[in-house]
Every structure is written in structure tokens, then in C-alpha cells.
């Protein structure tokens, strides 16, 4: 069973993976098997949000997700987030507001906020969006600009 072939849809394309070990994490599959290095490894224990991707549209921590557990699912990473209109608004808002310093946490923030806006719809209060990003850490502490980008992204999708 462990050696079976896994079929995921990654950024809209079918990815057929053979011989994926049972203990392999989605984070490692994306970065090292599929070469999608936009998804970052931060703490590897679910505490920082840097590795956030969408699984069937819902934000998930790819460091805490076994690849076998997303067999048959659609995975969206930062590389394709702008192909979604909401994702594009979020990316543009981060760019316009200069909401990054070193940039390491940015993919996680952009993907997590895209997931929140899609999940909670246009009427989600700003406070709920900011609250929903508390699991994403910016070690540069650039939160003021990030909060500006969240506000801008919310207004752009409203």
C-alpha cells in the first residue's frame, strides 16, 4: 500500500508520484520532488505558517501533512496563487504595500490570506482576517505593513 502511486493536482496540473514513502511530508514533496520552492520551510512543527498551501481550497500546513494524506486532492502553492482572482488581489496588495522585508514568510501569508478570503467571503470583518493570520510569523516583525496589505486585499475583493 505504501508503494502505490499517488495522484495529486498541483497548481492545476496532474502530478503522478511513484514510491512516495509513507513518512514523506507534502512540504518536502513540493520542494524537492516537484521543485516548487516558493513554499518555505520554517519551523517544521506547525508553529510558523511559512509552509502554508491550499489543499482543496483550504489553508493547510504542508509540514504537518503527509503526502499520502492528500492523494486525490488539489494543492495550490504560492507559484500559482495569482491564477485565482482572490489570490492575485492578495499578491498585488502585498506588493503595493511593500508588505515584506526578508520575504521568507510572505508566501505563507499570501496563501493563508487567500484561503481565509475564499473561505469567509467578502463580508469577513478585518479583525477576523487579522485574527486568522495569527499562526503566521514574520521574524522581521513587519506586521504593520502586512496588516495594511490585509486591509487592502480585503477592500480589493469586497
Amino acid at each position: 500500500m505504501t508503494e502505490r502511486r499517488l495522484v495529486l493536482t498541483v497548481n492545476g496540473l496532474a502530478a503522478s508520484l511513484a514510491d512516495v514513502p509513507a513518512g514523506e511530508r507534502l512540504l518536502d514533496t513540493l520542494r524537492w520532488r516537484l521543485g516548487l520552492k516558493g513554499t518555505k520551510e520554517g519551523c517544521r512543527t506547525g508553529g510558523c505558517g511559512a509552509c502554508t498551501v491550499l489543499v482543496d481550497g483550504e489553508s493547510s500546513l504542508s509540514c504537518l501533512t503527509l503526502t499520502h494524506e492528500v492523494d486525490g486532492c488539489a494543492v495550490t502553492t504560492i507559484e500559482a496563487i495569482a491564477s485565482d482572482p482572490v489570490g492575485r488581489s492578495v499578491r498585488d496588495a502585498f506588493e503595493r504595500e511593500g508588505a515584506l522585508q526578508c520575504g521568507y514568510c510572505t508566501p505563507g501569508f499570501v496563501v493563508a490570506l487567500t484561503g481565509l478570503l475564499k473561505e469567509r467571503g467578502r463580508s469577513a470583518p478585518l479583525e477576523e482576517l487579522l485574527d486568522g493570520l495569527q499562526g503566521n510569523l514574520c521574524r522581521c516583525t513587519g506586521y504593520v505593513a502586512i496588516a495594511r496589505a490585509v486591509r487592502a486585499a480585503r477592500e480589493a475583493t469586497a
Partner: peptide
């Protein structure tokens, strides 16, 4: 750089 949990050959998953 691929990292997996535990001894690879021994860990199996059933769904």
C-alpha cells in the same frame, strides 16, 4: 534534501 520520518522502509500507511 528530501526528509522522511523514521526508517523509510519500515513505515507503512493504510487508508
Amino acid at each position: 534534501r528530501l526528509r522522511v520520518i523514521g526508517p523509510v522502509a519500515e513505515l507503512e500507511i493504510f487508508t
